[in-house]
């Protein structure tokens, strides 16, 4: 497995996902909304002839709804849930660079503090005084509900 991770931003927190799980980064485009679906599920879009469910990752994690700006984009992730491979689109605030993260450099989350529910966080990585959070997407998508990543809301000040 490659150690390359794609960095992306939600509100003003930095996250990373292994590039192996990222199939594509799409510009934010029109999404067909599905009535009566859970709120974090923004709808479906035509992706290579299949229907791709698109979720608002901010909402899924219990944050405020994503405000669509020109940096907003959709990460197409392929996640293995059990024996099934699920392809899911995630709306994020901004995609940043690809960085290498070695397994040894990942610190387990509980030592960082109580802010994040450790179940959903694989670990954290320190890059120039900035914490990058590695999410466990398998756990996040296993449930159909909104999952809460933190018990305290992330404040939306400086950016």
């Amino acid at each position: 497995m490659s150690n390359s991770h794609l960095r992306f931003r939600l509100k003003n927190e930095c996250f990373a996902v292994p590039v192996d799980q990222v199939l594509k980064i799409l510009e934010f485009g029109s999404i067909t909304s599905v009535p009566k679906a859970p709120p974090f599920l923004k709808g479906v879009l035509n992706w290579q002839g299949s229907l791709l469910p698109v979720i608002d990752l901010n909402l899924k994690l219990g944050f405020q709804e994503t405000e669509i700006k020109k940096e907003s984009c959709i990460l197409v992730l392929e996640i293995k849930i059990g024996t099934e491979k699920a392809t899911i689109g995630c709306i994020v605030d901004e995609v940043k660079s690809v960085i290498p993260i070695e397994k040894e450099q990942i610190v387990s989350s509980p030592s960082i503090g109580e802010k994040y529910s450790s179940e959903l966080v694989l670990g954290m990585y320190l890059l120039d005084d900035l914490f990058i959070i590695l999410l466990d997407f398998i756990k996040i998508f296993e449930t159909d509900e909104t999952v809460l990543i933190s018990n305290s809301t992330i404040n939306e000040t400086d950016n």
Binding site: T32, L41, V44, L51, P53, I55, A86
Partner: peptide
Amino acid sequence: GPSLRKNRIFSGGSIMGDGEI
């Protein structure tokens, strides 16, 4: 998709000639 499997109003979606769903 799996997250909408519980949706009991729609049996699915279809891609139309113009690419819309």
